[in-house]
């Protein structure tokens, strides 16, 4: 039902993203000082993080699957979902820096969530460094699968737990006068949740394309070896 070649969920992604752009710019948002119209960035910046966590979760599942059943296909899925997740994370950081520049005054505020996200991104970058440094295919897949579990276990507290324990400028943690209404606003939820689903589906689409390209590549290499 949710196959990589199926059409319906890709169409859903396109429709939800179109709705996000149109509704995100035209629908009413709370009138808040400091953030003003930039509150609309919520529909684009925050889904990057939701998308990243989702893609990394899929990557984690396939890394565990690889350790239980060392098939090359499991490793390919884990790598490409981590790759797309990392792209989402970087976009999340850079969009956050633009937003922070206008609302907090500086692009890098040293906010706990900002620092945590940066460290989490580095942890995942190290996953690819690790893979690049091993030449034996089986060893590469197994060691990086173990590391991927560690990376996920490090990412969750860095992004979700530590920022909530200290005062962060991000909503939902510590004091943030400009954003208190956001948690309650139902009009924004009408765009925000579809936006999250749309961006996640887009990430899955890109990841599955990368997986399919890799599989084709593998099969071509196999055929060349047999000749």
């Amino acid at each position: 039902m949710f196959g990589a070649r199926k059409f319906w969920w890709k169409l859903t992604a396109v429709l939800l993203l179109a709705y996000t752009v149109i509704g995100g710019l035209l629908f009413q948002v709370p009138r808040l000082s400091i953030v003003n119209e930039t509150i609309r960035a919520l529909y684009f910046h925050v889904p990057m993080w939701f998308g990243m966590v989702f893609l990394f979760s899929v990557s984690l599942v396939y890394s565990i699957r690889y350790l239980r059943n060392p098939l090359k296909g499991n490793d390919t899925i884990a790598v490409e979902f981590a790759n797309t997740g990392l792209a989402y994370g970087l976009l999340g950081i850079f969009t956050g820096m633009i937003w922070a520049n206008y609302t907090w005054g500086t692009p890098w505020h040293g906010d706990p969530k900002q620092n945590g996200a940066a460290i989490a991104t580095l942890v995942y970058l190290a996953y690819f460094v690790l893979r690049g440094s091993l030449s034996n295919e089986e060893q590469k897949a197994r060691i990086s699968a173990v590391y991927n579990i560690f990376a996920f276990a490090a990412m969750i507290p860095l992004i979700f737990i530590i920022p909530r324990m200290t005062s962060s400028m991000h909503p939902g943690s510590g004091g943030n006068p400009g954003f208190n209404m956001y948690d309650l606003d139902s009009k924004m939820r009408m765009v925000f949740y579809p936006a999250v689903i749309g961006w996640i589906l887009l990430g899955v689409w890109i990841a599955t394309l990368r997986i399919r390209i890799r599989n084709v590549e593998e099969k071509i290499l196999d055929l060349e070896d047999n000749v």
């Binding site: 993203l17 890109i206 084709v216 071509i220």
Partner: peptide, 20 residues
């Protein structure tokens, strides 16, 4: 961008079909 993604998707599908 979505249109671009769709053409990539189709290209990959064609490649998959060509592999025996």
């Amino acid at each position: 961008l979505i249109g671009y993604l769709i053409t990539i998707d189709k290209k990959v599908s064609n490649l998959e079909k060509r592999i025996p």
